[in-house]
Design a protein around this nucleic acid. Structure first.
Lengths: 190, 190, 190, 190
DNA sequence: GATGAATGAGACTTCATTCAT
DNA sequence: AATGAATGAAGTCTCATTCAT
């Protein structure tokens, strides 16, 4: 019986290197980038890449899941701070801002996922649900505080985030946020 | 020097058929669609396709230019109506709405253009300039009327339009417009 | 409307060259032989090979069909001679003999077809039916003449032919025929 | 000089498990089956498989040798019974029948061996010689008894066995035997 | 000018074999 | 001695582009 012993150290390292290389290359050159090139960038042979990810779609899906998990972590942290007294609208704005600043390029990966028809894995689904729960909490708090417009729903975030600028400068991201935020609030722009 | 005699009637017709087929197929299947399939859908042979467009990027660029020209026409009409007394903000909102409703799918083509690295042709540049002029007029008028926020520029429209939802239902497009408009105006949401 | 005009002369020539090269190489090196090598032997590029035969199985199936058609022609000729007065058992023995002598190696192709899971095409089915009809006629005639054992059926030929020696010398084939024929007749061996 | 100490008990067990798994899988899926899959079916890792059999051809050769040994045992037993008074032709027929019934699939393995170019090992040679000796004895006895045709040699058995139906029903095997036996005897079919 | 067959580089993927753990 | 991750050559197939007809 081969009970899954702890995975070998170098295998874990390789998986990480591959994911990183894949994220960077897909982000830079689009999903058309070859598996050989990803493998080379990760410093492994193609075979190794395929041992970890049986098909290209699996690799892309894993990169997406990886990113979604980080987003979920961020959203949950924001929700926690709100529960501890922070103003919800501020947290929402800051969350969106971080999304655009830090992981901007990764959204391109997500687009790539759609283009390539990668199945979203269970891992990704979980991350999405975690984000949804945290965001819902943030929105409700914001509405209770009178800042967030009462008809705003989770779907609105989806709509905006799926169409956020990813291949732009940080300044562009900030400006986009400025333009988009008023639609989520009860306030106009000053 | 071969001065361009008037092009043959069937050549013109072929060019049109090809552009139409390309728009539809790229919209439906992404930029990965093959040249053979586009040619087949247009009812011509690949060779003919290549006579009109020496490379795939040229074809995609032409589809984009085609679309940009129609957008320019629309924007100029809106500017004209504003000059004739129509309220600028209303025209702006309607313009954005039409963009999302009518030609939604074509934005996907534009995304494809980026993905495939298609150069924007001279034709496209002209259309972009026409649209820019018309939109600038609309924005200025809106600002003079006190509806459009004073810091809104042409670049803001680019930012939003480049990231408008294209693969969504009309309802999603409308909702997106609702969320985005307040950022362009001096008014908040009711 | 692209009604199938007569196929281009060079295309026909290429198809023939490909089939021939495929038969020889599969016969010599088994079905593991690469498509690139077949293409090279045929003097065309891989792409051409794939234009004619979309997948390797299609190519193998075509080679098999080609061979089956020649077998069918031979069987029908034998049946015709029998109808014209020739002794059925002699024709049967000669038919089997020719199969082993002339096209011996091609049986390897058929084995390859099974190994590779090639679908038998409609063309092949037709050839098989033609052969079946001709052989049935031969067997009936042989039974009427009292030479062929009354319980011999078409299936017996299938059984023997599917397991005939293909990669042996002509002498081996002849000996195999000597050993196998008595089982089909009412006579023993002298 | 590392004189072969007695092999470890588990090593022996592993070798047996591997051979069994290999026979079954090659029989079922042809020689294209992967080493990984054979290892998995045997419950060992690939590395272990390669410790026992340095190359795939060695494994296949071992499977063939294993089978040949069993055939040799069977042939020798039949020869012994004949020496003890049993009718030679009956033993020959029964021997062929057992070959087809019991170990039918293993013939597929032998075909695989040829396809893959596996060298016959010394072990296999020995088994073949044992079988040859036993069969020769059977044939001579049968000829002395007047049942087996005087010109039948060992090579004839090779010829027939190499081309016996392996992927058929037991009924097919029996029918094949019926068709083939008369060629070996001095009797015709009833 | 149109046709569509031919080209061939390059994509994804498999698998026999090696080797660090 | 066993494990299973890593290797990388090789295989099948795609598709933008060229060119003979």
């Amino acid at each position: 019986m081969t009970s899954p012993r702890r995975p070998r150290a170098d295998a874990v390292r390789n998986r990480k290197k591959i994911l990183e290389a894949a994220r960077e290359l897909i982000d830079a050159h689009g999903p058309g980038i070859g598996m050989d090139e990803i493998a080379a960038a990760a410093g492994v042979a193609v075979g190794t890449l395929y041992r970890h990810f049986p098909a290209k779609t699996d690799l892309v899906a894993a990169v997406v899941a990886d990113w979604l998990n980080r987003v979920a972590d961020d959203a949950e942290a924001a929700a926690a701070r709100t529960a501890a007294g922070s103003r919800a609208l501020d947290e929402i704005a800051a969350f969106l801002g971080r999304l655009l600043e830090t992981v901007a390029g990764d959204l391109a990966v997500k687009a790539a996922a759609r283009a390539i028809g990668a199945d979203t894995s269970t891992d990704a689904d979980t991350a999405i649900k975690r984000t949804a729960t945290a965001l819902t909490a943030l929105v409700r708090a914001g509405q209770a505080e009178g800042d967030v417009h009462p008809d705003v729903t989770l779907a609105d975030f989806r709509l905006l985030l799926d169409n956020a600028p990813t291949d732009r400068t940080p300044q562009a991201g900030a400006r986009w946020l400025t333009l988009v935020l008023p639609g989520l609030t009860t306030h106009g722009r000053p």
